[in-house]
Design a protein around this nucleic acid. Structure first.
Lengths: 149, 149
DNA sequence: TATTGTTATACTCTATAACTATA
DNA sequence: TATAGTTATAGAGTATAACAATA
């Protein structure tokens, strides 16, 4: 009873603190490479598929079309992504990595390796697996709430 | 071997997705109350102690003095916090909640209850406890890295 | 009618560097 | 010398609303 009241307060703050720590480390590591942590997430998301529309991209990185556009404009200026007209939907644009974008992503992946080592060094593989599944439960619980409205 | 490579990629993204989902829900819930999710975290942090300096506050909410100052200026304008000169250190200021700030925090706590219900509804109390301890391990692993520099 | 993307706009958070005052 | 806070400044993400073109 009493413990759970405390837990209730601490879990959201702990989630924030853990993310902030990760985000800050990533931001610092990427600073000299001219890419933000969020831009890295966008590039990484693009690398897993051939191409996405801006709307799909916004959903996947937990953002919105307006924000994604602002990020894409910056990334396009840096030459890391292309925006082409969609083959079947004339309203949409397909976003994809350029060759330079793929190369940059490989560099960033290596730059971020010490951060991931730090992360996984703090727990066993079993704990990491468990954490992953719990985090997904958390994300899913809010997505359901979102789709209700 | 191969699974762990995938896990390695997914855990940071899952942490981000979970936090973003929480943050977005919180932001939406607080929007009509004129307070951001980050300001709520600041108020909540202040509520747990009598008073803090701006430097201490920055550390506790995983931020920096400049950002904290910007937030405090807004919160002071809204009448939720006071900044008084520190009793023994003339350089420092002590930040504390006003009566209005405490009242606002109570309101915000209630407004946020459905979000926490959503969060805890997605898992058992044991899982919540486990998630909390794993998130703390994550945060601690990066704090150590930080203090080395 | 609904959806994709754009544009304009405003706000918040972030972060660095130079600075003052104090320890 | 180091630290607490301020200030100026710039940039990046967030988000809403109005809009055009298309489905």
């Amino acid at each position: 009873m009493h413990e759970s009241k405390e837990l209730e307060r601490q879990l959201p703050l702990a989630l924030r603190a853990a993310y902030m720590a990760l985000h800050r480390s990533t931001e610092a590591a990427f600073a000299k490479h001219g890419v933000t942590a969020d831009q890295f997430v966008l590039l990484l998301t693009l690398s897993k598929v051939r191409a996405l529309t801006q709307r799909e991209l916004a959903d996947r990185i937990s953002s919105d079309p307006s924000t994604v556009r602002a990020m894409l404009v910056l990334l396009e200026k840096s030459g890391y992504i292309d925006r082409d007209s969609h083959p079947t939907d004339a309203r949409a644009k397909t976003v994809s990595l350029t060759v330079a974008g793929r190369r940059k992503l490989r560099t960033l992946w290596n730059v971020g390796q010490p951060i991931r080592d730090e992360l996984y060094g703090a727990m066993t593989p079993e704990e990491a697996e468990l954490l992953l599944s719990l985090l997904r439960k958390v994300a899913r619980s809010f997505q359901q709430e979102r789709s209700l409205s």
